[in-house]
Design a protein around this nucleic acid. Sequence first.
DNA 1: ATCCAGGATACCT
DNA 2: AGGTATCATGGA
Length: 299
Amino acid sequence: MLPLLSDVNPSVERMQWSVAEYDLAATLESGQAFRWLPCSDGSWAGVLDGHWLRLYPVADGLAAERLGSRPSWDSVAEYLQIQMDYPAVLASFPQEPVMESAVAACRGLRLLRQPLWECLAGFLCSSNKQIIQIRAMIAALCRQFGDPVRVPNSLSVKQEVWSFPGPERIATATENELRACKLGYRAPYLREAARRVAEGELDLEGIRSLNLASARERLQTLPGVGPKVADCVLLFAYGFPRAFPIDVWVARALQELYFNPDKPPTLKTLTAFRDQHFGPNAGYAQQYLFHYRRVSYGK
DNA sequence: ATCCAGGATACCT
DNA sequence: AGGTATCATGGA
């Protein structure tokens, strides 16, 4: 039986959402996701659920284009967190000059809700790396182990696109193959983490129902996953609103804005402060501090 | 060349 | 418990 023409050559479908205060560029560039590529027309091209997707900022919100019927528009809206109550999150921040300045500097910055494994693997590779290098590592992993993703025939610049490889695929890669993707000492960590997820030793979906402390504990049983990486996954993929990764930039921001700028506080001090100061949406506040420190007076 | 990067780990006091 | 060397790679 011949396949339907629409399956062989699916057409581009478009959807639009009305949403206020959504800075798509800041959101996709702010170091929470590593796979979005900027296009010359201001849109962003990427892959969701194994399928090509393009995102546009438009006058009163966001628009998206897909090829055929996937990814589902529901999954796109979930990924972008279009329905979340953004003003309520900002209102929950501490009423203080620091957070007011941070929000003023990057209003419209949002948190995504990413697929679990992709987010975990990405941040497992992120340790002691610059964002630009993390992007390169992830791109190499997808090119080596992902499946080819169909893109519209109409694309002027034919770009090759691959899906993000699942844990089953990463687990069967050799350590040297992973090192060839510039993972360095992270290669055996990622391979072992993939194996444990693929074989069901760690149930990523099951972590959704845990409280924050238990979820941290479970993720940190994986090699290469410590407190910072775990909180990135818990915030950017699971959506735990109080997860609050402290990396070098956030530590710098906390020190300069809340502590003695000349004497670095211990990580324990920063952790205690984080847990009592930023309220029910501390993770969101963290993303503002991170971006604020990087764009306004960082290097 | 030297320092550092969305850190984690093993190994020390 | 709390500091420190080390890890692989490449940007600034």
